[in-house]
Nucleic acid binder design. Structure first.
Lengths: 126, 126
DNA sequence: ATCAAAATCAATAATGATTATCGTTATTAT
DNA sequence: ATAATAACGATAATCATTATTGATTTTGAT
């Protein structure tokens, strides 16, 4: 993989904005400082970074995919009202994959957990 | 909600085909016997059935949403090779939502778990 | 059984997210 | 410095899904 300035600033954006932005959000943020960057470039590089394991792609949270610079094992919580995504530390959840594998006989390799509810911020506001 | 023949056969299709079909698959199956049914009708009714709790919509498994006639609490396993979806009984997984709520302080209301790996069928074939 | 109101339908246009294409530009190994 | 190639920007294309519209069914009251 060849170096590119664009990939670098896309990764930086993800690291600075830990709020699990969508591709479009990353584009919007970058577009301010770099008006020439293309949305296609953002998608292209987010996918590449995902494939090489530098970042993580989160599907099924919302309408569109979100991207996470934190590649350590952890899970997610999404607020039904504001749609903000929160991290749920891995330790909170037991070794589900291996447990489920043992009990079902399926060759489970991983598992994704999405918790849903109302976030503290939205609870206060209502 | 008013009765409609179309909604009835869409629900029947889901009950007969427990393989978690996509809207498009439901349409393809029905189109053989009912060439006049519209894809939009399938989407509309699958959404209605989901909203009234008759069926369940599964997001984040694959590219497109899948539908499940089984509304009992359970989780899912998707094979990385053939993309078939298997049910994982609820009992296999402990009371995650309440546990996670207690440990994170978030108002967790529910959680979806997707297990990933290779299904028995594909294991044999390789 | 009849008729109007409400819901649903089929067909299709529109939308939103994402990917593919293509001619140009930047990076890297020689 | 050059040639090979990977990446870029712009935009067209694709895919899944939703909205629109005018016609048809279903329902409930007469």
């Amino acid at each position: 993989m060849k170096y590119s300035k664009q990939r670098e600033i896309i990764l930086e954006t993800l690291q600075k904005n830990a709020m699990h932005p969508t591709a479009d959000m990353v584009y919007s943020i970058l577009h301010v400082q770099y008006p020439n960057i293309s949305l296609a470039t953002v998608y292209r590089n987010l996918n590449q970074l995902t494939q090489t394991g530098v970042i993580r792609k989160l599907d099924g949270l919302d309408g569109s995919a979100r991207f996470d610079h934190n590649t350590h094992k952890h899970h997610h919580f999404i607020c039904a009202k504001c749609h903000r995504v929160y991290d749920v530390p891995y330790e909170v959840v037991p070794e589900l994959a291996t447990q489920a594998a043992a009990q079902t006989g399926l060759a489970v390799e991983s598992c994704d957990i999405i918790f849903r509810g109302c976030c503290p911020d939205c609870l206060v506001k209502n």
